[in-house]
């Protein structure tokens, strides 16, 4: 279990993480979501004792990470996968980690096998692709067979087969009863992997909910309509709210069927009539839009 209590990190006058409190429970995959610059990596670094919080703190099973004698046996993490020395082999990279935590050298062979890097174990890391680095980073996280796992953007640079592999691995780790926290800025990825979501924006907690709750609580579905005179259409609708979005209108509180029938009765020609289902992606966009660090001019 990972707990963060009022976790805060300030750089000068900017808050990277601002009073964040949450609990990551075992036996499920918790997605850690937020736009780029939301503070996900900083939060993870503070949980792992790399960065010192300005205020508050984080615990792993009741103790700060820094207090563990052999932390890799308790918690494994993949942060920046490319943080390795290019002149070293994968085996030596993992071997130094294993020895530092009193783990047998045989574990290195096991995890290399598990992540599919056994055949390139003795090759210098300089020639690895990003996907191979990710696999090596995951191997490092699994080395101590830990109960708690943290992955920062683990599917970055992976091909579709690799993405599927990570997804399956995360599900399996959670099914084994481990605590799994996975950060991502891609909702679509999390939708297929996570059971629970922690969403942050500009360093603040935006949501901490199960995936289905999250969709329900967030964006509603709507009907997208295009026609020549939207105001005329709105006046003929029996109920519902109409909002203009560029060249189309979104109608909520009423289904596509009712909109179509109202339009037909009033003799209005519709150019488009689409029922848009609520999605995790939409709920996420809606929640984080206001807190995105960098947004383009148009949304």
């Amino acid at each position: 279990m990972i707990t963060a209590a009022n976790l805060t990190k300030r750089y000068g006058r900017t808050f990277a993480v601002n009073g964040l409190s949450f609990t990551v429970k075992s036996s499920r995959v918790t997605g850690f979501l937020g736009p780029n610059g939301a503070g996900k990596s900083t939060t993870m670094r503070m949980i792992l004792g790399l960065d010192r919080p300005t205020a508050g703190g984080a615990h792993i099973d009741g103790r700060p990470y820094r207090e563990y004698e052999q932390p890799l046996r308790k918690a494994g993490a993949l942060l920046d996968a490319k943080s390795v020395h290019g002149g070293r082999s994968a085996r030596n990279h993992l071997l130094y980690l294993a020895y530092s935590n009193g783990l047998p050298a045989s574990r290195v062979g096991e995890v290399l096998e598990e992540v599919g890097l056994a055949s390139v174990a003795d090759r210098r890391l300089g020639g690895f692709s990003l996907g191979m680095f990710q696999r090596l980073g995951i191997a490092g996280a699994l080395l101590g067979d830990p109960e708690v796992l943290l992955f920062d953007e683990p599917v970055n640079g992976l091909d579709p087969e690799g993405i599927l592999w990570v997804r399956t691995l995360l599900r399996r780790l959670a099914a084994e009863g481990r605590t799994v926290l996975v950060s991502s800025h891609l909702m679509s990825e999390m939708a297929q992997t996570a059971d629970h979501l922690i969403v942050i924006g500009k360093g603040r907690l935006l949501a901490d909910a199960g995936v289905s709750d999250f969709i329900g609580r967030g964006s509603q579905g709507y009907v997208r309509v295009r026609c020549a005179d939207t105001a005329l259409l709105a006046s003929h609708l029996p109920e519902g709210n109409t909002t203009a979005h560029g060249d189309h209108v979104r109608i909520t509180g009423i289904g596509a069927r009712a909109v179509g029938e109202a339009a037909a009765a009033a003799g209005i020609a519709l150019h488009e009539l689409v029922e848009v289902q609520p999605t995790l992606e939409a709920a996420y966009m809606e929640l984080t839009q206001a807190s995105a660090e960098f947004t383009t001019g148009r949304s």
């Binding site: 670094r45 792992l48 932390p71 993490a77 942060l79 490319k82 390795v84 980690l97 530092s100």
Partner: peptide, 14 residues
């Protein structure tokens, strides 16, 4: 330079 220090300090936080 390589960022490996973070991996090292994860393994040995003391």
């Amino acid at each position: 330079r390589t960022g490996m220090i973070r991996t090292t300090l994860l393994a040995v936080p003391r």
